[in-house]
Design a binder for these strands. Structure first.
Lengths: 223, 223
DNA sequence: GCTTTTCCTTGACAGTCGTCAAGTTTTTCT
DNA sequence: AGAAAAACTTGACGACTGTCAAGGAAAAGC
């Protein structure tokens, strides 16, 4: 019987058990592959319904398996959702890195960042509302907090890479702390998301107009 | 039989029915009083447990009545929660008005605003996390959106009154739009709330240090 | 004081939830 | 091919949910 935990057993380096080790690893990889497959299905269900209304049976219906299988691969619901959140992070936290790497002028970086900012707002709106849902859930449920704070930190790093590179290209320095930069941009994003989902496209457009200036306020040009 | 709806019947101005009207109004007022009483109990339950885990029986236990009475005063759960949200607004949306009214210098206004900002963060933390919970819920549940957008607008007006008055006292002008001011301050508040509830007091203190400068960036002094 | 209306409690309903045990199907190994 | 292990399905459990109807308790009206 293969136990339903995600901890891989390592350290079996004895020569006589190599073959067994190889087999076990293949099993574990297969196990993990299905785990992430189910976690992705969970992610889509959560994005569609929100945390409060997502049930295990609904998740199973969004996969090709039955609801019982979830307890074969996950200890309980929290374990499943935690894994789903980790999948979210993989998708989301390197979003702007290519823009940073390829842009050669400050204006280009700023414009492409703004473009991608509002692109993903429309494209992945349900995923983003899920993130905010889970982050809020961590205000009530302590067991989510560690993961949420970690992802929040990665998001902060992500926008810091953008803005500090922008300052570099502009030939100046960043005027505010990484935390302030993040909460500002994240606040703009949240507001834009709410307006987007409420169908208020003109409000979203207005935020798009104002975003470049907000970025501009964060850096001071060298004289 | 007195129907459980919140719409008051008006327009009965006929002289012969004055007495009946007076009685009816007293009944209605009593009805509304109990409605708000139950809405307040709902608010506290929501603040404690969050939207996802709040049940009608739990709400009733936080009041002095049994669970059945909720359907006597409210059409359904949504009606009840909507009324609770309105109660939240009454409490929260005029929080800084006195600071604005009594401050005579820019520094005083700024310092007292910051003080109250972090006061209510610690004092009413559960209420605030509820607000963010419900705002997020509106990203999934369309029926919350109108109320949420209205309250969000009032919150924006609230901080606008603070910052525009601050600019006035400083003898300058506000450099960014009301929306940008709100999303920034709200973003800072959200971050501080998360850190506060996570027990990271030093992070909260750091945000407190940085808040005055963030306000400073929003206004430009006249030369 | 008696009747009528209002207010509130109690208990039940149909449904959903997370969880798990038993059993079936599929894969793997010898 | 046969045996063993893994992967998956099914159905059930107790608990909990929102809702509502029946009836008792309290207040109002006469």
């Amino acid at each position: 019987m293969f136990v339903a935990v995600s901890v891989r057993i390592r350290g079996v380096t004895d020569v006589a058990s190599r073959k067994q080790d190889r087999i076990t690893r293949r099993q574990v990889d297969k196990f993990d592959a299905r785990r992430t497959e189910l976690a992705v299905a969970t992610l889509h269900t959560l994005a569609e319904l929100g945390y409060a209304r997502t049930s295990l049976r609904e998740i199973a219906q969004n996969s090709e398996f039955s609801h019982g299988v979830l307890h074969y691969y996950f200890a309980d619901k929290r374990d499943l959702i935690t894994e789903a959140v980790r999948q979210y992070e993989v998708v989301c936290v390197t979003r702007y890195d290519e823009v940073v790497a390829t842009s050669t002028t400050a204006d280009q970086l700023r414009d492409e960042f703004v473009a991608m900012f509002f692109d993903t707002l429309g494209q992945d709106a349900t995923l983003h509302r899920l993130w905010y849902d889970l982050r809020n859930q961590s205000l009530f449920d302590e067991s989510f907090r560690a993961d949420v704070l970690e992802i929040d930190g990665h998001r902060e790093d992500m926008v810091w890479r953008v803005v500090s590179r922008y300052a570099e290209l502009v030939g100046g320095t960043v005027a505010v702390s990484p935390t302030m930069i993040y909460v500002t941009l994240d606040g703009i994003f949240q507001r834009a998301l709410l307006n987007h989902l409420a169908g208020k496209a003109d409000n979203v457009a207005q935020l798009r107009v104002e975003l470049p200036a907000a970025i501009g306020l964060m850096v001071t040009k060298a004289e």
